[in-house]
Amino acid sequence: MDSESEAYAAPAGMHVGRVALTVGSLDAVIPFYRDALGFAVERADRRARLRAGDRTRLVLVEDVDAPARPSEAAGLYHAAVRVPDRPALAAMLERIRESGHALSGASDHGVSEALYLRDPEGNGIEVYRDRPRAEWPRSPDGTPAMGTRPLDLSALAADAPDSRSGLSEGADVGHVHLEVRDLDASEAFYAGTLGLAVQERAERAVFAAAGGYHHHVACNTWQSRRAPADGTARGLRWVEFAYPDAASVVAARERLPAERVVERDDGVVEVTDPDGIRLRLSVDADGDAGRA
C-alpha cells in the first residue's frame, strides 16, 4: 500500500445511513418492526420504509420468490438500531417483552448496552445505547476497549419511563455487523479502501469506524462462511454509508475497485465488498422522503 493510501481516512462525519433487507413476506415481518421495535411504517407495493421521526432507517423489500439465505453464504450478522439513552433502551426492552418476542441475548459492552433478537425471518437485530464517550473504557493506544458482560435486565427495566410512544426520533442505525469469509480481505477493504480506522481486533473479528466511534462496521468469521453473499436470497440487500458532502463521496469513489462499482444517476455510488455485499455511498441529508 502506498503512502497516499496509508494517509487516507474516511471523514469523521461518515456513518451508517440505511440498511435494506429482502424479505419473503412484508405481512410477516412488519408487525415485529412496528410493535416490538416501534418503527413507523410507510408501505407501498412490495416495499416498506421503517422510520424514526422523519428519517428512514430500515428498508424492507418483499420478494416472495427469494430463497432463504444459504447456510454457507456471507451476509448479515446483525443490523444495530441505536437509541439515544438508557431510558429509551429500557422502553425498548418493555416494548419487546410486551410484544411477545424473545431476546436472544443482552450484553454490556463497556461502550454500550445492547439487546439482541431476531426478526421473524431470522435477521439479527441489535438494539443498543451508547455510553457517553468520556466513559468508554480505553486500550493503551486510546482506542475503545469493548468487552462483553451480561446486562442486568432488571436494573435496565427500572429505568423505563412511565409512558412511551413509538421509536425515539433520535434512533438510527449505529452500525452493521457482517459475517464474512476472509477477515484480512474484509479489513483491507473497510479499513484500507474505505478508510475506516480499526478500533479493535478480537477473536476472528474486527471492528472499524470513522471519527473515533467504537465501530460502524464489524466483520467476523465465527460461522466459517465459505460462499459469497447471495444477492437473490432473503436477508441483507444493501448497506448505505452516508458521507457529509459530495466531495467526500467522490474521494471515496476514486479509491474503489472499478470492476465492482455501479454508477447511478442520483449521485449514489454502489459497490460490492469482497464478499459481494452491496454498499451504497451517498451524501447524508436532513430528510429522505424521496429516496427509496
Rank of each mutant, 00 (worst) to 15 (best):
A9F: 06
A10I: 03
P11L: 12
H15Y: 12
V16R: 06
R18W: 04
L26W: 11
A28N: 03
V29A: 00
P31S: 00
P31D: 13
D35P: 02
L37Q: 05
A40R: 02
R46G: 03
R47T: 14
R49L: 05
A52L: 02
R55F: 10
R55A: 15
V59L: 10
V61L: 08
V61T: 05
E72W: 07
E72K: 15
A73R: 08
G75Q: 12
L76S: 10
A79Q: 06
R82L: 15
P84Y: 00
D85I: 10
D85T: 08
R86Y: 05
A88D: 04
A91M: 03
E94Y: 11
I96Q: 13
R97W: 14
S99F: 09
A102Y: 02
L103W: 07
S107M: 12
G110N: 07
V111W: 04
E113R: 13
E121H: 07
N123I: 01
V127H: 11
Y128R: 03
D130G: 02
D130V: 01
D130M: 08
R131H: 15
P137S: 07
M146C: 12
L151R: 00
D152N: 06
L153R: 08
A160I: 01
A160S: 05
P161F: 01
P161Q: 14
A171W: 02
V176D: 02
E179P: 03
D182L: 07
L183I: 00
S186L: 11
F189A: 11
Y190Q: 09
G192W: 07
G195I: 11
L196M: 02
V206Q: 01
A208M: 15
Y213L: 09
Y213G: 13
S224Q: 15
S224P: 04
R225V: 02
R225Y: 09
G231E: 04
T232H: 14
R237I: 07
E240I: 14
V249E: 04
V249Y: 01
A251V: 14
V261N: 00
D266G: 01
G267R: 07
V268K: 08
E270F: 09
V271E: 01
T272Q: 04
R280V: 04
D284S: 12
A285H: 13
G287R: 15
D288N: 12
G290H: 01
